[in-house]
Design a binder for these strands. Structure first.
Lengths: 205, 205
DNA sequence: TAGATTGTTAATCGATTAACAATC
DNA sequence: TAGATTGTTAATCGATTAACAATC
């Protein structure tokens, strides 16, 4: 790798991929940076610049073949394969995440669901038997799992994260409304709908 | 307003607020840009710069009084008041959103839940009687609602958004994995967990 | 050929950081 | 007073945009 690619570029690739999926679904076979940009509210120059970090995927005068570009982006993002993910927390939020059907066809599969509450362990959620949190390290190590989702109350999120990282997890999607402190080689992303709402109210009257 | 404040600054304010809530909960009464920065992985200079757009909230040598700074940020973000929000979609995802307890104490209240499916209308979800989507314009206009959340399948999201906007909604939180086209005076934010996962896999081996 | 669109370079724009006087 | 930390300015850094030659 000559120079490392900006995080912000990486963060846009899944958005491009999602738009390409949509275009394919609508029956298009070819698209252009201009059309994609118009749909996404992004300049065409930025899209071409972003893609050019990874190679020349288009043809002058024509644009981009959608199936080809999708495959290329999937390869860049390493989602041609399916990733196994553990989910910690089987409360309201965890249950909703477990039931969410949007993961399957976009590269992710929930392997196993964990909870600390003894009354939840052994019960089922979305086809998974809930495992006690004590088994987390074993399962992660045995199945070599690199990705976890945290859906526990804010007070427990940090200690869950510590266990996950200690066991070998290297990417965490955190649904708890709290910042996690993690070593720099571990990646964390946050889902907090309230943050988005609070941002928008600034612009309202 | 002398010069308009960058969106990216606004987007960090709710994060600061969330961290301040946490600090308060832990019993702290005063904090500094350094401490806040350390917790959030943000430079102290950036925090001071961001806050300085809105006024001088701190004291040299001492830092920031947490309760005071919280109040100031809430005022800036306009969340001293509670905002009414409509939710469209009462499927798995919508139900989970309706049940989520994290909105209440952070400035938002779900007024009403809508769904298009006749077999869902009239049933209850999280204490709300599900309304038919035809009533959306009336409710929005009568209650003067400015914020909506969309939790319908991707294919319907755009047409729901069109109805919402037509009825007067000015901020949309979209849980459907699709980009919305909206007039520029309407604000849209997206929740798509898969996007975050796909970003992180790039960095995994 | 004429028209369209890419990939890339250079210019612009904006955000982050460093540094420090002011002052609690 | 000595130490700490703010608010702000100027310097740096990085990302976006404009422009265009190449070429399908």
């Amino acid at each position: 790798m000559p120079t490392s690619i900006p995080d912000i570029v990486i963060s846009r690739l899944p958005i491009y991929l999602r738009a390409l999926d949509r275009l394919a679904q609508e029956g298009f076979e070819v698209t252009s940076s201009q059309e994609l940009g118009k749909r996404l509210g992004i300049s065409s120059a930025q899209i071409r610049k972003d893609l050019s970090h990874f190679g020349g995927f288009g043809k002058q005068g024509t644009g981009y073949k959608i199936t080809f570009l999708k495959d290329q982006l999937r390869a860049v993002l390493k989602i041609e394969r399916e990733w196994e993910v553990v989910l910690v927390g089987a409360g309201d939020l965890g249950t909703a995440v477990a039931r969410y059907r949007g993961f399957a066809d976009r590269g992710f599969h929930i392997t196993c669901v964990f909870d600390a509450a003894p009354d939840k362990v052994g019960k089922q959620v979305a086809g998974h038997v809930i495992q006690p949190i004590e088994k987390l390290p074993t399962v992660i190590r045995e199945k070599n799992i690199q990705i976890a989702m945290i859906a526990v109350p804010a007070e427990y999120a940090q200690s869950v994260a510590d266990i996950l990282i200690e066991s070998g997890v290297r990417a965490i999607l955190n649904y708890a409304p709290i910042n996690l402190n993690v070593p720099q080689e571990v990646h964390v992303q946050y889902i907090d709908p309230v943050l988005h709402l609070q941002q928008m109210t600034y612009y309202l009257s």
